[in-house]
Amino acid sequence: MKPSFRQSTEISHASAEPSAWVVRFVPLVPTGSPVLDLACGSGRHSRLFLQRGHPVLAVDRDLSRLGDLAAHPRLEALACDLEDGSVPAFFKRRFGAIVVTNYLHRPLFGLLAAALAPGGILLYETFAKGNERFGKPSNPAFLLDKGELLRAFRDKLKVIAYEDMVVEAPRPAALQRLCAQSEPAD
């Protein structure tokens, strides 16, 4: 089986704590709105939004890492191969927030922007070129080019914040981060 981006990064970059980038922008998410945690892994961001009263759709190829979180009454857990070439039906829904961390599958960019409800927030954080010096992922196919995340969404969403940088914590990594918002309803 060909290793996926998720498999290559889970061990070396996994953390039980939510991303500081995601936590920073949580207050922008409309109260009580549904949240999509895409490639959710162990559900660290699902847990954050559930604690804030949001219903959450947690999607990953393997849901076994959700543990006790899978039984939460406001959590819908969906096992889904996001890279099989099909468009999952959940992209027809609209979300007050979509969270994607440590995952990159470029064909999903347009679907993510379209799945935001009016005024919804996209929180995206993943690895960029330069990360190969810190370990996995090191395959260029799984690393964003300079400014790529910004270019992917700036014509579709209002960019609130963007960073392309090297961080030292929780582990050294080259990252791009984006917080963007869909147009509010009139």
Rank of each mutant, 00 (worst) to 15 (best):
P3R: 12
F5M: 13
R6Y: 13
R6T: 04
S19L: 09
R24G: 05
V29F: 11
V29D: 02
T31V: 10
T31K: 14
S33L: 00
S33W: 00
G43C: 03
R44T: 05
S46G: 10
Q51T: 00
R52K: 13
G53E: 02
G53C: 06
H54D: 14
S64L: 02
A70N: 03
A71G: 07
H72Q: 07
R74K: 11
A79S: 04
D81A: 07
D81Y: 00
L82R: 07
A89T: 12
R93D: 06
R93I: 08
F95D: 12
Y103L: 03
R106S: 05
L111G: 06
A114P: 08
L116C: 04
L122M: 04
L123A: 03
E125A: 09
T126L: 07
T126V: 04
A128E: 10
A128C: 05
G130P: 01
P137V: 02
L143P: 08
D145S: 15
D145A: 15
G147H: 13
E148R: 10
E148C: 14
F153H: 09
D155A: 15
K156A: 14
K156R: 15
K156F: 01
K158D: 12
E163W: 05
D164Q: 09
D164A: 14
M165W: 03
M165P: 04
P170C: 08
P172K: 07
A173G: 01
A173P: 02
C179T: 06
A180H: 06
S182R: 14
P184C: 15
